[in-house]
């Protein structure tokens, strides 16, 4: 698996072949609080870089989930729809959101690495 990359909208993405797995970051879940609802894109649908591809809701509010790259949705994680609390438990592991067959691998270039994201997250929350 390739290096995990991060977006300014607090999504993480990791690539295996041309299939990207996308979820929301630990930092995002800490800001949202307890997540009680998740909505995912439809399998087979196409999503565009920086477009909305889902929703998460905490007890307090709803937030859009964006996709950091374009592609076709090839898989979705139903487990987090059935039990959204899983997202708080393991956001950057088992609680991934969806998998995309990427159109253009170079879209990853504009994203942040772990170190850059940690710095960004720290600055944006202070």
């Amino acid at each position: 698996m390739s290096e995990v990359k991060f977006s300014k909208e607090h999504e993480w993405i990791s690539l295996e072949g041309d299939v990207a797995t996308i979820g929301i970051t630990q930092h995002a879940t800490e800001m949202l609080g307890d997540i009680v609802f998740a909505e995912l894109p439809e399998k087979g649908s196409n999503v565009e870089k920086d477009g909305t591809a889902g929703v998460v809701e905490s007890t307090k509010a709803a937030s859009d989930v964006y996709t950091p790259v374009s592609g076709e949705v090839v898989d979705i994680n139903e487990a987090i729809v059935d039990d959204p609390a899983k997202i708080n438990e393991d956001p950057e592991g088992t609680a991934w959101f969806f998998k995309l067959k990427m159109k253009d691998i170079s879209e990853l270039d504009s994203l942040m690495n772990k170190e850059e994201y940690d710095k960004f997250a720290k600055e944006s929350s202070s």
């Binding site: 609080g33 307890d34 009680v36 905490s58 007890t59 307090k60 609390a85």
Partner: peptide, 10 residues
Amino acid sequence: PIQYSKGVIE
């Protein structure tokens, strides 16, 4: 305070 470290549900 909106919440403490345990969070709303707990």
